[in-house]
Computed example of a mutant assay.
Amino acid sequence: MKYASFAIMLLLFATDAASPQRSGDTAGTTADARIPELWFSANSPWNIPITSTIKTSYSDAAIAAYAARGHAINMNWGSAGVYVIYDYGTERSHADLAFRDGNGQHWAIPHVPISSTLIKAVTYRLEQGNTDGMTCVVDVPSKRFLSFWQPRKTANGITIRTGGFASFTGLGWSLVGRNLPSLGRAAGSNYCGGLIRESEMQRGTINHALALAWPKDLIRAPTSPFGALQYPASNTDGVNMTSPAAVPMGARIQLNPALDDAALMRLGLTRPADLIIGHALQRYGGYIVDSNTATMGGSVYFESRFNSGGRIYGATNPWPLAILSQLRFVPPPPPQGMDLTSPALLATTGNPRQDQK
């Protein structure tokens, strides 16, 4: 995700030093009764199965252009880490994280819990050379998914370059046409959306669409004559202006649902984790929500496990090239009768409030 966000400040509120320590934070598994199994609302685009049997007009050309480069699909388990906030303990303070978007508007994410676990994760990312620092925080007390891009440690907490939040029952996407900053990813979606989580792999099922990246030069530029966005995306950082084989940001990709496990294994998906991921891509598909360099290819995003994802998830990485012939782009889900301009929907999606000061 690359966005033009500018000056940023941290408004620190009173700490909770007098509060009793309860369960504290964890950067571990998300299998906890206080965290909903279904992330975001049932009618969120993340949670709607694919029902269409048709391909988009650009599907064949897009897959062919990608395959011509010899790119595989990578398993990116160094992506947005899920840092679970259970309560407000003794090591916690609260802050409004304020930033300015590319249009010069000031925004703030209110009452963000600043924990030692979060600061540890931010510090770790910088030590590992991860300058994007894509971060998802599950804020259980406030029932919010917080989403930060380029967090940095400061003497009093953290700053962010941009970000947002979504309620547990929100859509998890910034609203199309509302001139709002991205909630994290280039497409406008929350970083928590579409992650493959450790608890899901332990359970053996993934009941939502996946978050994927695609090569930047195979994603349409904002002024592309072919149309830059596909619902539910509201932003893009694509750069392709000329090729009909480039995909719009928000494009939805699907693995051939007619393939049974035996067929998937013949294609090279021989590990149990491969089949779990494959089943999710067959039923829910995945959204192109971010970009990679032209040489990197596409990626599927996982809950980050501090560089131990390969051991924890155990999927084949990268997936065999034979899989590419079984992928297609499909139409987006309908907006489910939602009024995308309603103030009520704006509130539930949890876009950062505009700072009027």
Score class of each variant (00 low, 15 high):
Gly24Val: 09
Trp107Lys: 00
Ala95Pro: 06
Ser19Leu: 11
Gly78Gln: 01
Thr90Gln: 10
Asp25Thr: 12
Pro244Gln: 03
Ser304Ile: 09
Gly227Tyr: 07
Thr53Ala: 15
Arg271His: 10
Gly102Trp: 14
Leu97Tyr: 01
Pro49Val: 12
Ala80Leu: 08
Gln282Lys: 06
Glu127Trp: 07
Leu229Gln: 01
Ala262Gln: 09
Ala344Gln: 13
Trp39Thr: 12
Ser44Arg: 02
Ala98Tyr: 11
Asn156Phe: 11
Gln150Trp: 09
Ile73Arg: 03
Gln230Tyr: 07
Ala80Phe: 06
Arg34Ser: 12
Leu267Ile: 06
Asn130Met: 12
Thr162Val: 14
Asp60Arg: 10
Phe168Cys: 06
Gly70Leu: 14
Ile119Asn: 06
Phe145Leu: 02
Ser182Glu: 03
Thr348Gly: 08
Gln128Glu: 14
Phe329Ala: 01
Ser291Met: 12
Gly172Asn: 00
Asn190Met: 09
Ala322Phe: 07
Val247His: 05
Pro318Trp: 00
Pro225Asn: 00
Ser19Asn: 07
Thr90Phe: 09
Val239Phe: 12
Ala7Phe: 14
Ala42Cys: 04
Pro215Val: 14
Pro244Gly: 05
Asp261Pro: 03
Trp77Gln: 00
Thr293Trp: 10
Phe6Cys: 09
Ala213Glu: 05
Ile219Asp: 08
Gln150Gly: 08
Ile109His: 01
Thr205Val: 15
Gly337Asn: 02
Leu118Gly: 08
Asn292Glu: 13
Val140Glu: 03
Asp101Gly: 02
Ala27Ser: 14
Asp217Ser: 15
Thr29Ser: 15
Val239Gln: 09
Tyr287Trp: 09
Pro335His: 02
Glu303Gly: 06
Pro244Arg: 01
Gly350Thr: 01
Gly314Cys: 08
Ile63Tyr: 02
Ala273Asn: 05
Ala211Met: 07
Leu255Trp: 07
Tyr3Arg: 15
Ala17Ser: 14
Gly278Asn: 05
Ile63Ser: 00
Gln356Tyr: 13
Thr123Trp: 05
Gln105Ser: 10
Thr293Cys: 11
Tyr66Ala: 11
Gly337Ala: 04
Thr242Leu: 10
Ile219Phe: 08
Lys120Tyr: 13
Gly188Asp: 02
Lys55Gly: 04
Asp87Tyr: 11
Ile323Gln: 03
Tyr124Lys: 11
Ala273Phe: 02
Met134Tyr: 13
Leu195Arg: 01
Leu275Asn: 04
Ala72Thr: 14
Pro151Met: 03
Ala258Cys: 10
Pro318Asp: 05
Pro331Met: 01
Arg197Gly: 02
Ile109Gly: 06
Tyr301Val: 05
Ala280Asn: 05
Gln326Thr: 10
Pro335Arg: 00
Tyr124Ala: 10
Ala31Met: 08
Ala228Val: 11
Asp60Phe: 08
Tyr124Pro: 01
Asn179Glu: 07
Gly193Cys: 05
Ala7His: 13
Gln326Asp: 13
Leu281Lys: 07
Thr53Glu: 07
Ala186Gly: 07
Ser57Asp: 15
Gly78Leu: 04
Ala246Pro: 15
Ser308Pro: 03
Ala246Ser: 15
Thr15Asp: 15
Val84Trp: 04
Ser93Arg: 13
Trp214Asn: 09
Ala65Thr: 07
Gly310His: 03
Val112Leu: 04
Ser44Asn: 02
Leu345Gly: 02
Thr270Phe: 02
Ala315Gly: 06
Glu91Leu: 12
Gly310Asn: 01
Arg266Gln: 15
Ser93Asn: 08
Ala62Val: 05
Arg283Trp: 04
Ile114Cys: 04
Thr316Val: 10
